[in-house]
């Protein structure tokens, strides 16, 4: 039972990370109708920025705050720039061209990292010095709780933003019908840019928490993590914001549980089993947990 609870909390915190990143995939898909495969690499860039900034400034709380802010802003700007330079010119192109471009941007970022930092994994200095606490005999890492708490706050802010503000409702309108939205006075290009900025800033927050949990970074750190977050977005129903949150958390919990409770021989393949669950789920409900099916009337 104790193992179960601590694994559950572990899974929740891992899942929160997936959820933060899955949101970026899902929002961009919902609004720009494209899969931004470079999204995972934004996290990698974020961790490298953090690595450099912390290396230069040290990890005192003040410096950490500054470094984290720099990193998140950097990620947001990176997302904005990628959209502006790579995707916006392809607004009218076929979805396949955009998809290939996104994969291209992903490789570009990875290779830039390879060029600058080499292929060796770098150790990010530890910056959250948190221990663990015992509640009823269960050992709980404070870091896991911090990740969970930050994610919940971010999700609440995002929900307020989407559902209660004019820019949020502009995003919903654009995701439904770009043409009509434009004719109702919504600036579609600005709305898409904003989506990339928000998604990438969330990836920045994800990078900050990810590197606290797994303090190693290499050029491919983001893409491996990103693919899982993408799977989480699909699991929850891509395009749906609550779907991305739930999908991320569930994938995290499934993965953590598989790691602990599968027999040793199989637990090495826990990722594979996580995907197996995804496949079964999609066979049963192809639109994902909260995805909506659009029925065309004929």
């Amino acid at each position: 039972m104790q193992t179960f609870i601590s694994t559950l909390i572990d899974g929740l915190s891992l899942g929160s990370l997936y959820a933060l990143v899955a949101l970026g995939y899902s929002m961009v898909y919902g609004i720009a109708k494209m899969l931004n495969f470079a999204h995972g690499d934004v996290i990698m860039v974020g961790i490298y920025v953090l690595f450099v900034a912390l290396g230069a400034m040290g990890t005192s709380p003040l410096m950490l705050t500054i470094a984290a802010l720099i990193m998140i802003v950097f990620c947001a700007l990176l997302g904005f720039t990628i959209e502006k330079l790579a995707y916006k010119p392809l607004r009218a192109a076929s979805p396949l061209s955009v998809l290939i471009t996104a994969i291209g941007v992903s490789y570009l970022l990875q290779n830039l990292a390879l060029l600058i930092f080499g292929s060796r994994q770098q150790k990010v200095p530890t910056y959250f010095h948190l221990g663990s606490i015992y509640i009823g005999g269960v050992q709980i890492e404070l870091l896991s709780l911090l990740i969970l708490a930050v994610t919940i706050v971010v999700m609440i802010l995002l929900s307020i933003f989407i559902n209660k503000t004019k820019l949020g409702s502009a995003m919903l309108a654009v995701s439904e019908d770009k043409g009509a939205a434009q004719l109702m006075g919504i600036n579609v290009n600005a709305t898409i840019s904003l989506t990339f900025v928000i998604g990438s800033a969330l990836a920045g927050v994800g990078a900050l928490l990810y590197a606290a949990k797994m303090p190693w970074v290499g050029p491919y750190t983001g893409s491996v993590f990103g693919i899982k977050a993408f799977a989480a977005a699909v699991f929850g129903g891509i395009g749906s914001i609550p779907g991305a949150m739930i999908g991320g958390v569930l994938i995290g919990i499934i993965e953590a549980m598989m790691n602990v409770f599968l027999p040793d021989v199989l637990s090495n393949a826990s990722d594979g089993f996580a995907y197996l669950v995804l496949i079964i789920m999609l066979v049963i409900k192809p639109t994902g947990l909260l995805g909506r099916k659009h029925v065309e009337k004929v």
């Binding site: 409702s169 019908d177 939205a181």
Partner: peptide, 9 residues
């Protein structure tokens, strides 16, 4: 001509 409301809103 073909109604284009934001149906999910």
């Amino acid at each position: 001509q073909n109604i284009r409301l934001f149906k999910e809103m």
